[in-house]
Structures are given as structure tokens and as C-alpha cells.
Design a protein around this nucleic acid. Structure first.
Lengths: 190, 190
DNA sequence: TACCTTAATGTCAGTGTCTGTCATCACTGA
DNA sequence: TCAGTGATGACAGACACTGACATTAAGGTA
């Protein structure tokens, strides 16, 4: 007989996602989420820094998959090629059976400006971390940050296409196309 | 004898900037800002949607200067060249005598995550608007969004260099260098 | 002059997010 | 048996933000 049911964080996360999806983010109170998870409001704020964070857990693994890909990239590539290795590595994080849940989560975020702001902040942190990893590999500024920001842009656009209605291509395929488009765009006097 | 002193918005903006800079954003209450401006808390929220917005006024003119530059760009250029026209046009918005005040404002934003999130959101909106302007000029997706996002990235990095300690180059000079770096990075098999 | 309208503000009573503090309870190890 | 320890509950409070209604001075109109 345990005093507390295990998995409090997971229960809070699930309850939050479900309520945000059905009632809307602003229309759900933290007290409601806590009650749905069988806990109190105070406990919610012990596990999540704020009401939004319940939707953004597990970002460390996500970010690490980018950094791993950058570290593992072969030597001698251009900055963008090394970034492509990182973004491709992270694509494995999103197998096709995750598409449905990714779609729901993205829909919730798209419906609320506060959540969009948090999402942008996470992406900005990712770009900063990737730029750091590039510098570790000897790439100097401003090339490191330019390449990292470009990589995050391509990832965001690819992800949006990946979960778009009717889409069925794999994330990594879409990424490759968009990186090709990026190099085409950057040509001056084209 | 006027009943109310004119320039309520400006007074609130100034009071907020000063208090955020001296006490810190989270440490200042809206009531304090309102009192410093000779108004009430309720009036603050009539002029600004939230506590952060007091720092982000006048974004419409700022954004429009990008769009104007895109509209005015000559025909026949690549997507990135048209974006460069927009970003260069906006550089005129930041003459050198604005450097000191830009520096203070940026410092306040850098000191607080909530303000950073709002800043990122504004930049994201700018990129969306620029992509729309590019589409108006016949550029298709995904080229339009890729070019717009790249342009915003270059602008952000240029701006950061422009207000960096000891910097004295003009914003437009820095932008040109970074656009050149961007095209260099994007070359595959470099 | 008296009256009406309007715009900007004030007043007041809320709701909801988030924090600090202390109490509670099961489990653990000595 | 007893002193930690860790997750939670209970409670009070600060502060951001909103809705509803009152107030005031300026301008226009009869």
C-alpha cells in the first residue's frame, strides 16, 4: 500500500493535454488539471514551473538528439552539412507512429499565443545549443549561429509539413527537400 | 485646464522602461508603473494588453519598414535578394543616435525570459508578414518562408552586433556582411 | 443657459496564476 | 523504536488581469 499513486508528473501531463485540447488552454484552470490527476494545485506547480510547461516536458532528449547528430557528423563538411546531420538525427525522434500525437499537441499550441511563445523560446534555445555544438567542432561565429538558426528553421518547416493534413512522407525526406531549397535560395544572382 | 495630462501611453511606457531597467521586470508591479505615470493600474491595462506590451509598442512601423523594402525591390532578383532589400530598408529605422536607447531596451529584455519570449513572438510575426509580402511578389512556398526566416535571422544577429559593447559600425554594414556569410555557409561541398 | 454626448479615466469587486510556509504521512535505515 | 526523507496537502497571500459601473471635462446643440 503506497501512500501516493506513482507517476504524478505523467498524470498531470496527460490531464493537461486532454483538457487543453477539449476546453482550450485559457479556459482550463490548474485546479481542474490537478483534480483530474487526483492531486492538488500546489503539487502541479511543484512539477511544472508554470501552466504552460505541462505541455513541454521531455525537451532535453529532443534537444540532445540534435547535438548527438552534430557530434557524430563526419569531418570536413561545411557548416550547413554538419547541421543537416544534426537535424536528420533528430528526425529519428519522430517516427511515423508519433504523427497523430504530434498533430494533436501542435494543434493545441497553434490555438494559443502563450503556448506559441513558449514553443518559440524552446526552438531558440535549441538553436543556441546547436551553435555551441558547432563551435565545439571548430566552426567560428557568425557561421555557427547562422547555420544553427537555418537548421532550426528547416526543422520547423519540415515538422509543419510532416503533420499537415494528408501528408504521409517521412520527416527526414521533407527535411532533405527543404535543405535543398535553402541552398537554392541563397544563391545570389540566381 | 485639461482634465488629464496628455500622453498617457508615452508616460506609462517611459515609467515601465525605467522601472524595468532599475528594479527588474518581475520586481516591478503594474501598480508602481501606473503610480509613476500618475495613473491607475486599470488605465495601464486599457493601453497595454499585458505587462510586457509596455515595452513593445510601435512594432507596426517597424514591421512596415521591412515590407516597404520588399515591395520596392527591383524585379528579377532571387528570393534572398528581395529579402535583403527589406532588411536593408528596415536598417534605416535604426539610425546611430538610437543606439543607446536600443541598447538599454535590449538589456532589459535580455534579463528576463518572459520578455525574450515576447520578442521572439514579434520576430516570428515579422517573418510571417515578410513571407506574405514575398508571395505577393510571386515567390512560392517554401522559398518565401525560407527566405523570410533567413532574413529575420540575419537581422537579429546584425542588431545584436550593432548594439554590442564597443561596436560602431552602422547596422546596414553589418547586415551586408552577414548576408554574405549566409550565402557562403549554404554552399554544399564547400 | 441648459442639456446631451463622448472619450479618457477612476473605483471596486472579482478570478486565476504562482509562491512561501508549515503540517502530514509513509517509507527507510540505524 | 526513532530520527530522517521525500512527496504531498492546507492555507494564506501577492500580483496580473477583467468586467461593470461611476465620474469628469470637453464639445456640440437647442
Amino acid at each position: 500500500m503506497v501512500r501516493w499513486e506513482p507517476g504524478a508528473v505523467e498524470r498531470l501531463h496527460s490531464a493537461a493535454l486532454e483538457l487543453y485540447a477539449t476546453k482550450g488552454f485559457e479556459e482550463t484552470t490548474v485546479a481542474e488539471i490537478a483534480q483530474a490527476a487526483g492531486l492538488t494545485e500546489r503539487t502541479f506547480f511543484r512539477h511544472f514551473a508554470d501552466k504552460r510547461e505541462a505541455l513541454f516536458g521531455g525537451a532535453e532528449l529532443f534537444q540532445q538528439s540534435f547535438l548527438d547528430g552534430i557530434e557524430a557528423a563526419p569531418d570536413g563538411g561545411s557548416p550547413l552539412e554538419i547541421v543537416i546531420a544534426g537535424v536528420s538525427s533528430a528526425a529519428r525522434f519522430f517516427s511515423d507512429d508519433r504523427r497523430a500525437s504530434s498533430r494533436q499537441r501542435t494543434k493545441v499550441i497553434a490555438a494559443n499565443p502563450q503556448l506559441q511563445e513558449r514553443e518559440l523560446h524552446k526552438m531558440s534555445s535549441l538553436a543556441t545549443a546547436m551553435a555551441g555544438a558547432l563551435r565545439e567542432r571548430g566552426i567560428r561565429e557568425p557561421a555557427a549561429t547562422l547555420a544553427a538558426e537555418s537548421g532550426v528553421t528547416v526543422f520547423r518547416m519540415s515538422f509543419a509539413q510532416w503533420i499537415a493534413d494528408g501528408a504521409d512522407r517521412s520527416l527526414i525526406d521533407i527535411e532533405q527537400d527543404l535543405f535543398a531549397e535553402l541552398t537554392a535560395i541563397a544563391v545570389v544572382r540566381g
